[in-house]
Amino acid sequence: NLYFQGLKYMVPGARVTRGLDWKWRDQDGSPQGEGTVTGELHNGWIDVTWDAGGSNSYRMGAEGKFDLKLAP
């Protein structure tokens, strides 16, 4: 699974964008943008601060869902 392989790169400072299971509307800005991981992966959740200004926790394994992917 590509998403599980990418988890080791989901570290503080990593750049991310919305992924396969995104369901959080425009939390990442409008139009959709990139963000920066600000915390360690914990119980399948990870913290992100978006360039647009907001921050929140997103699923990276929790509930079998992956809200994020590494930015290109």
Results as ranks from 00 to 15, higher is better:
Asn1Ser: 12
Asn1His: 14
Asn1Met: 10
Asn1Lys: 10
Leu2Ser: 15
Leu2Asp: 15
Tyr3Ala: 14
Tyr3Phe: 14
Tyr3Gly: 15
Tyr3Gln: 15
Tyr3Ile: 14
Tyr3Leu: 14
Phe4Glu: 15
Phe4Trp: 15
Phe4Pro: 15
Gln5Met: 10
Gln5Val: 12
Gln5Asp: 15
Gln5Arg: 11
Gly6Arg: 10
Gly6Tyr: 15
Gly6Val: 15
Leu7Lys: 08
Leu7Trp: 11
Leu7Ser: 09
Leu7Met: 13
Leu7Gly: 08
Leu7Arg: 09
Leu7Asp: 07
Lys8Asn: 10
Lys8Ser: 11
Lys8Ile: 13
Lys8Arg: 10
Lys8Leu: 11
Tyr9Trp: 12
Tyr9Gly: 09
Tyr9Gln: 09
Tyr9Leu: 10
Tyr9Val: 08
Tyr9Ser: 09
Tyr9Ile: 07
Met10Asp: 01
Met10Ser: 03
Met10Gln: 03
Met10Trp: 13
Met10Pro: 03
Met10Ala: 05
Val11Gly: 08
Val11Ser: 08
Val11Met: 09
Pro12Ala: 11
Pro12Trp: 09
Pro12His: 09
Pro12Lys: 13
Pro12Gly: 07
Gly13Glu: 03
Gly13Thr: 03
Gly13Ser: 04
Gly13Lys: 03
Ala14Asp: 07
Arg15Ile: 03
Arg15Cys: 04
Arg15Met: 03
Arg15Tyr: 02
Arg15Ala: 01
Arg15Phe: 03
Arg15Ser: 02
Val16Lys: 01
Val16Gly: 01
Val16Thr: 00
Thr17Gln: 12
Thr17Gly: 07
Thr17Ser: 10
Thr17Cys: 15
Thr17Pro: 02
Arg18Leu: 09
Arg18Val: 06
Arg18Asn: 01
Arg18Ile: 07
Gly19Asp: 04
Gly19Arg: 07
Gly19Trp: 06
Leu20Val: 13
Leu20Lys: 13
Leu20Tyr: 12
Leu20Ile: 13
Leu20Gln: 14
Asp21Lys: 03
Asp21Ile: 04
Asp21Phe: 05
Trp22Lys: 03
Trp22Met: 05
Lys23His: 07
Lys23Thr: 09
Lys23Cys: 15
Lys23Asp: 10
Lys23Ile: 14
Lys23Ala: 10
Trp24Asp: 07
Trp24Ala: 06
Trp24Val: 05
Trp24Asn: 06
Trp24Lys: 04
Arg25Lys: 14
Arg25Tyr: 12
Arg25Gly: 15
Arg25Trp: 13
Arg25Gln: 14
Asp26Pro: 04
Asp26Ile: 06
Gln27Thr: 06
Gln27His: 06
Gln27Trp: 06
Gln27Pro: 05
Gln27Lys: 05
Asp28Val: 05
Asp28Ala: 05
Asp28Arg: 03
Asp28Pro: 06
Gly29Val: 06
Gly29Asn: 06
Gly29Asp: 07
Gly29Leu: 05
Gly29Thr: 05
Gly29Pro: 05
Ser30Ile: 14
Ser30Gln: 13
Pro31Arg: 07
Gln32Val: 08
Gln32Asp: 10
Gln32Ser: 14
Gln32Glu: 10
Gln32Ile: 08
Gln32Leu: 10
Gln32Gly: 14
Gly33Glu: 06
Gly33Phe: 06
Gly33Leu: 07
Gly33Val: 05
Glu34Arg: 13
Glu34Cys: 15
Glu34Asp: 08
Glu34Met: 14
Glu34Ile: 14
Gly35Pro: 01
Gly35Asp: 01
Gly35Trp: 02
Gly35Ala: 01
Gly35Glu: 01
Thr36Ile: 09
Thr36Arg: 07
Thr36Val: 10
Thr36Trp: 07
Thr36Ser: 08
Thr36Tyr: 06
Thr36Ala: 04
Thr36Gly: 01
Thr36Asn: 04
Thr36Leu: 06
Val37Ala: 03
Val37His: 02
Val37Trp: 01
Val37Lys: 00
Val37Phe: 02
Val37Ser: 01
Val37Asn: 01
Thr38Gln: 08
Thr38Tyr: 06
Thr38Gly: 05
Thr38Asn: 08
Thr38Phe: 07
Thr38Ala: 08
Thr38Arg: 08
Gly39Asn: 09
Gly39Pro: 00
Gly39Met: 06
Gly39Glu: 05
Gly39Val: 05
Gly39Tyr: 03
Gly39Trp: 04
Gly39Lys: 09
Glu40Gln: 12
Glu40Gly: 11
Glu40Ala: 14
Glu40Ile: 13
Glu40Asn: 13
Glu40Arg: 12
Glu40Cys: 15
Leu41Arg: 08
Leu41Lys: 05
Leu41Ala: 08
Leu41Pro: 08
His42Met: 11
His42Thr: 13
His42Ile: 13
His42Phe: 11
His42Gly: 07
Asn43Met: 12
Asn43His: 12
Asn43Ile: 06
Asn43Thr: 06
Asn43Trp: 09
Asn43Val: 07
Gly44Tyr: 02
Gly44Asp: 01
Gly44Leu: 03
Gly44Trp: 05
Gly44Ile: 03
Trp45Arg: 03
Trp45Lys: 02
Trp45Met: 06
Trp45Phe: 05
Trp45Gly: 00
Trp45Thr: 01
Trp45Ile: 03
Ile46Gly: 00
Ile46Arg: 00
Ile46Tyr: 02
Asp47Tyr: 13
Asp47Trp: 14
Asp47Thr: 14
Asp47Gly: 12
Val48Pro: 00
Val48Asp: 00
Val48Leu: 00
Val48Ser: 00
Val48Tyr: 01
Val48Gln: 00
Val48His: 00
Thr49Val: 12
Thr49Ile: 12
Thr49Met: 12
Trp50Lys: 00
Trp50Asp: 00
Trp50Asn: 00
Trp50Ser: 00
Trp50Leu: 01
Asp51Pro: 01
Asp51Val: 04
Asp51Gln: 04
Asp51Glu: 05
Ala52Gln: 10
Ala52Val: 08
Ala52Phe: 10
Ala52Asp: 08
Ala52Ile: 07
Gly53Gln: 02
Gly53Ile: 01
Gly53Cys: 07
Gly54Asp: 08
Gly54Trp: 08
Gly54Leu: 10
Gly54Tyr: 10
Ser55Ile: 11
Ser55Asn: 11
Ser55Tyr: 11
Ser55Cys: 15
Ser55Asp: 07
Ser55Val: 11
Asn56Val: 04
Asn56Trp: 13
Asn56Arg: 08
Asn56Leu: 05
Ser57Lys: 14
Ser57Ala: 12
Ser57Glu: 07
Tyr58Met: 03
Tyr58Val: 04
Arg59Glu: 01
Arg59Leu: 02
Arg59Gln: 02
Arg59Tyr: 02
Arg59Asn: 01
Arg59Thr: 01
Met60Ile: 05
Met60Leu: 07
Met60Thr: 01
Met60Pro: 00
Met60Ser: 01
Met60Cys: 09
Gly61Leu: 02
Gly61His: 01
Gly61Lys: 02
Gly61Gln: 02
Gly61Ala: 00
Gly61Phe: 02
Gly61Asp: 01
Gly61Ser: 04
Ala62Gly: 06
Ala62Tyr: 14
Ala62Ser: 08
Ala62Met: 05
Ala62His: 11
Ala62Glu: 03
Ala62Pro: 01
Glu63Ala: 09
Glu63Leu: 08
Glu63Gln: 13
Glu63Ser: 09
Glu63Arg: 08
Glu63Tyr: 12
Gly64Ser: 08
Gly64Cys: 15
Lys65Ala: 13
Lys65Leu: 04
Lys65Asp: 02
Lys65Glu: 04
Lys65Arg: 09
Lys65Phe: 08
Phe66Asn: 02
Asp67Val: 03
Asp67Thr: 03
Asp67Lys: 02
Asp67Gly: 01
Asp67Gln: 03
Leu68Glu: 01
Leu68Gly: 00
Leu68Val: 07
Lys69Leu: 13
Lys69Met: 14
Lys69Ala: 14
Lys69Arg: 12
Lys69Pro: 00
Lys69Thr: 11
Lys69Val: 12
Lys69Cys: 15
Lys69Ile: 11
Leu70Ala: 08
Leu70Pro: 09
Leu70Met: 10
Leu70Phe: 15
Leu70Asp: 03
Leu70Thr: 05
Pro72Asp: 13
Pro72Asn: 14
Pro72Ser: 14
Pro72Tyr: 13
Pro72Thr: 13
Pro72Ala: 12
Pro72His: 13
Pro72Cys: 15
